[in-house]
Simulated scan of single mutants.
Amino acid sequence: MPVAYADSISVQYFHQKDCHDCEITDPVIDRIEVQYNNSIVITRIETSTADGFNQWNKYGFLEVPTIVINNETKIPKEEITEEKLKTL
């Protein structure tokens, strides 16, 4: 049963075209978005653009894909799982 939140949750998903790991996490992000579409807002940020790279870089990440929730909770590539995202 989906949980309703008063404020929607902001999710920044940093990824890049032709990134093997991103191809694995893209469907996970898509499923989360469908499941929680009323309570989260997912922004997909392409890190191969200057703007996307700068946004990604300010969080101090070294690799893509990565996720930032509500501008504070940082999830590096190796920790992106459907279960972890549902919990957070």
Rank of each mutant, 00 (worst) to 15 (best):
V11K: 08
V11C: 14
V11D: 07
Q12Y: 08
Q12D: 14
Y13T: 01
Y13G: 04
H15Q: 15
H15N: 13
Q16P: 07
Q16W: 11
K17L: 15
K17R: 13
D18T: 13
D18R: 08
D18F: 09
D18G: 13
C19N: 10
C19R: 01
D21R: 02
C22L: 09
C22W: 11
E23T: 02
E23D: 14
E23K: 14
E23G: 10
D26K: 04
D26P: 08
D26I: 12
P27E: 05
P27V: 07
V28R: 08
V28E: 05
I29V: 14
D30W: 05
D30K: 15
D30I: 05
R31M: 14
R31A: 14
R31G: 11
I32C: 04
I32W: 02
I32K: 11
I32D: 01
I32F: 12
E33Y: 10
E33K: 09
E33D: 13
E33R: 12
Q35W: 08
Y36E: 05
Y36Q: 09
N37P: 08
N38H: 06
N38C: 12
S39N: 10
S39C: 11
S39W: 05
I40N: 03
I40K: 01
V41E: 15
V41C: 13
V41D: 10
V41M: 15
I42T: 11
I42N: 05
R44P: 04
I45V: 13
I45W: 03
I45D: 00
E46I: 09
T47K: 00
T49V: 09
T49R: 01
T49G: 03
T49L: 04
T49Q: 02
A50I: 09
A50G: 04
D51Q: 08
D51K: 11
G52L: 01
G52P: 00
F53D: 06
F53K: 04
N54W: 02
Q55P: 03
W56K: 00
N57G: 01
K58V: 12
K58H: 10
K58D: 04
K58L: 03
Y59S: 02
Y59V: 07
F61S: 05
F61V: 02
F61W: 07
